[in-house]
Structure formats: C-alpha cells, structure tokens
Write a protein that binds this DNA or RNA. Structure first.
Lengths: 210, 210
DNA sequence: GTTTGTGAAGGGCTTCACAGCT
DNA sequence: AGCTGTGAAGCCCTTCACAAAC
C-alpha cells in the first residue's frame, strides 16, 4: 500500500485529536468537524482515512473509539523502537527530557557526547556514553534510531559512526547540514533555522496563507 | 513574483553552502556540483536560482561570491526582525541559546514564562518577563515574531495573548497542537514528534528513500 | 565543448463532485 | 436527508531535454 508523506503527518494529528475527543467522551465525529478542528478540508480528511479501508459510516460519521484504534493500528509497529541521541548540548538535553519523545512505542535508551563532564553520567534518566563507544553500545542495546543534535560540523562524522554500527536504520537530524548515508538508511531533517527563514520570507513578501 | 515554499527552503541551504564555499576560497561552482553537495538534481538547482533572474554564466557556472550575495539579497529583509520566545522550558531555553537563531538579520529580544523562578532573570542574555506582560512588552519592543515553546495545552492561549498585542505578524510554533490565528498572522509549525513518527512509519513499511 | 535557463512533460498531492450507504 | 468513499479534475512542484550563451 502506497501512502503519501503528508498523509502520515496528518494521521499523527488525527491520532492526537481523537485521543482528546475520546477523553472528552465524544462518540461520533464527522470529517467536516475534524477538518475544522485541524484546519483541513473535509475531503482531505476523508481521503486520508479511506487509504486504510472503509472505517466511517455513511450518513453518520466516524465512531471516535473505533477510528482512534484504527489510526493507532496504522501508526503502530511490532517492536518498541530504541533510540540513541548523539550530542548532549542544550538542544539534545531538551529532547532527552521532552515528553513527546517518550511513549510505550519508543524511547531514548542511550545518549552520546564527547564532553567528559557528561560521559558516564545519567541525564534525564538516560545514560551518557562517549561517542567512541557508539558502535558497541548501539549493537549491544539494538538501537535502530538515532537523533542527531550535534553542531553542523560534526554531523556527518557522527552519522558515519552511527551507521557503521550496522544496526541503525533511521536518523532524525537537527543539524543544519545535509548528511549523506548509505542506501537503506532513512534520514529526516528538522531544520529550525530554515523554518524561521521561510516564515520571515513570507512575512516580507505577503503572499499566501500557509 | 510567486516562489514556492520548497524553493525558499532550498535557498537557505544554498546560502549556507555558498558561505562555506566562499570561506574555502572557491570562485566558481556549477549546478551539478551544488546538487551533489546538497542531494538535489542539477535541474532543480538551476530552476530555483533562475526564479530570481539570470545569475549564472552559461558554459561556466555560478560565480560563488556573486551568487552568495544574490541569494542573501533574496532572503534579506529591510528591517532587523525582533523575536519573542514564549515558554522558557528546556526546549525554550535551548532555543534561546541556539546559534542559528542569532544573526544580524534577527534576534530574540524577550522571553516570557509564568514561572516566578524565571521571570525577572536574564536567560542566555535575554530578559524574561511574565506572560501577562506580553502585550506591553511586545508593543514596546516592536516584536513581530513569536517562537512558541509552551506545552500543547497552553499553546492557543499564549498565541491569542501574543496576537492580541496587535504587532505580532508571524508565529513559529513547536507545540504539538494546531493553533488558530486571525487572518494576517502567519504560522509555521515544527512538530518534532510528528517527524519522528513519520520516520518510524517508513522504517516499518520500507517504501521510498526520502 | 560546457553549462545555464526554460518551456514542456511528468508525477504527486489536493480538491471537487457525486455515487453509494445508512 | 446526511455523510462517507472515490474516480476525475486541478494544481503545484520536479524533472526532462534542448536551445542559447559562453
């Protein structure tokens, strides 16, 4: 089954909204209502949800509990992902303690840095190792995901070292530098500075509403 | 002139790369080379750069200095943007000290929180005010951009308060909740948890290389 | 010969519009 | 009558391919 990336992004939003509606005791919701709450067209919502089978009831809408479980199923994975975080600077430390990076579905199991002040300590409940120990620790703990929060200049080197372990399948990078990886490894970039620059550009030249 | 959002995002990358090439003393670069360094097709690079006039030399390539200045011009703005950061938690504090959010083109001028421990202090060189003081401080300092790093539950309220000042034009939100703003205010979202979920989804069901 | 600039083609995501259930 | 599911249309961005410039 082929699913577009924007659809997956919205599914995460649907999931959050449905969790909330469920808590509020809401039983049924329409694509129209979901759209209004998330700023999307109703047709977009229906198309997204229809990719994974007919789940709504025509003339009625979507049953909140049922849809919640359905979306959860789509986003679920068989095993619990183990994550390693490389670069325990301010941003890295912030992410180590970030609530949305803790769940029953994944968790940060190890941190890595070069600072002797940090190596050997436990930060936000996560043990910190030296970057040189990465290959062994990643293999030992079977860590398949890496969060990269190192300075741009160190990003490629850190990525290489992580990938060399042979167990890393995906990297979420916050570095403002493009990183190259061998085929089979998936990289997503979160470029905070670029997001800000985009915002500033469209504020300068008023064009469209995002 | 109509410019696509993905183009602006890439322009930021071109700018960074050109700054680096300039420092290395490089004089000329081709679209092919830029593409290889950033992981883009050469035709994409040329199309992006051509939106803003003919800047390359056929048969030669792009003059690094000239192109650097040209891209800088495109991304530039007449005034220096002043930014306010709302929510001095771990993530907020990390962003206050983040190098890529400091430049001659913009800067964080004020932080806001409700924690009495933080209000009145100067954090990473930025004075911290109480959230209740936002309207006056924003107006006084003429702060037009807001970075939102508050918990999801507080995001809409904080956004409302900031927008109520009347001077805020753009919001960069890190909250995992959609925020509604009146027309004329531009919102960009950085959803870290959603990026991670996307990565995990495509790792589960091996599909395309990003 | 080399590399840019660009119209045209291609591909992918969104929106429309309506058939199909309830 | 109300709302979903979906083929078709529309729109936007990327890629191609080649003429034009050096």
């Amino acid at each position: 089954m082929k699913v577009a990336e924007p659809t997956i992004e919205r599914l995460v939003q649907y999931y959050r909204l449905l969790s909330q509606l469920k808590e509020e005791g809401r039983r049924v919701v329409s694509s129209q209502e979901i759209g209004e709450m998330l700023g999307l067209k109703a047709s977009q919502v229906r198309k997204d949800l229809s990719y994974f089978g007919e789940i709504g009831k025509r003339g009625v809408g979507y049953h909140v509990d049922r849809l919640h479980q359905h979306v959860s199923q789509i986003l679920s994975h068989p095993n619990v992902w183990k994550i390693g975080l490389v670069g325990v600077g301010r941003l890295g430390e912030a992410l180590l303690g970030h609530k949305s990076l803790r769940s029953e579905k994944f968790g940060i199991e190890a941190a890595f840095d070069v600072d002797p002040e940090k190596v050997g300590k436990t930060i936000e409940g996560v043990p910190c190792y030296h970057v040189d120990e990465m290959p062994e620790v990643l293999k030992e703990k079977n860590i398949e995901i890496i969060i990269l929060t190192v300075p741009a200049g160190a990003a490629q080197h850190a990525a290489d070292k992580a990938v060399a372990s042979g167990v890393v399948k995906g990297i979420l990078s916050f570095a403002t530098a493009p990183i190259a990886v061998p085929p089979g490894v998936l990289v997503y970039n979160v470029d905070i500075a670029a997001e800000l620059e985009k915002l500033l550009f469209y504020l300068k030249s008023p064009a469209k509403e995002h």
